[in-house]
Computed example of a mutant assay.
Amino acid sequence: MESIGKPSRQELNLIKLLVHKAARILPLNWETDLKVRSMQDGGMGSLLLFPNGIFVEDRKFGERISEYQFRDVDGVDVIISLNYDTKGELFELDVWKTDLSPLSHLPGKL
């Protein structure tokens, strides 16, 4: 199992963009103790999100609240979704590269 830690600067910037685009309002301090854990997704970069730094194992997908699309350096489309769990808490940053290959990099300019 991957370890839980703070998101990288790029990951946090991407999550902030998606939170800003979301049709939901999060608490002002949502990022203060946010922790992340890499998901086993073939290197695409998906993350499980743990608000308030609290690890909860049995959470389930609730709904997608925001989405961002871009092209990776190899020209393949990437769709990134920010998802809530069934209790309305941040759940995951789902990264899907449409050919299922590993992500080369997160977008530099958001």
Rank of each mutant, 00 (worst) to 15 (best):
E2N: 05
S3M: 04
I4C: 14
G5E: 13
K6Q: 12
P7G: 01
P7C: 14
S8E: 15
S8I: 12
R9P: 00
R9F: 11
R9L: 10
R9Q: 11
Q10W: 10
E11D: 08
E11Y: 07
E11Q: 15
L12S: 00
N13Y: 09
I15M: 13
I15Y: 03
K16A: 15
L17K: 14
L18F: 12
L18T: 13
H20S: 15
H20G: 08
K21H: 14
K21T: 10
A22H: 02
R24V: 15
I25T: 14
L26D: 01
L26Y: 11
N29Y: 02
N29K: 05
W30Q: 04
E31P: 01
E31D: 12
T32P: 00
T32Q: 10
T32V: 05
K35H: 09
K35F: 03
V36E: 06
V36I: 06
R37A: 14
R37D: 01
R37E: 14
S38M: 02
M39V: 06
M39G: 02
Q40I: 06
Q40L: 04
G42S: 10
G45S: 08
G45K: 08
S46D: 05
L47T: 02
L48Y: 07
L49D: 01
L49C: 00
P51D: 05
N52V: 03
G53C: 13
I54P: 01
I54G: 00
F55Y: 14
F55G: 01
V56I: 15
E57G: 02
D58E: 14
R59M: 06
F61M: 08
E63L: 12
I65H: 08
S66R: 06
E67L: 13
E67T: 15
D74M: 10
G75Y: 06
G75K: 13
D77L: 15
I79Y: 12
I80P: 05
I80F: 03
L82D: 07
L82K: 03
L82F: 11
Y84S: 10
D85R: 04
D85Q: 09
E89W: 10
E89D: 13
E89F: 02
F91T: 07
L93A: 00
L93M: 01
D94I: 00
D94M: 13
D94Y: 14
V95M: 02
W96Y: 14
W96P: 00
W96S: 09
K97Y: 08
K97P: 12
T98M: 09
D99A: 11
L100V: 07
L100F: 14
L100M: 15
L100E: 08
S101F: 02
L103M: 02
L103I: 09
H105P: 00
H105G: 05
H105N: 12
L106W: 15
P107N: 04
P107K: 01
G108S: 07
K109Y: 03
K109P: 00
K109R: 07
K109W: 01
L110F: 13
L110M: 13
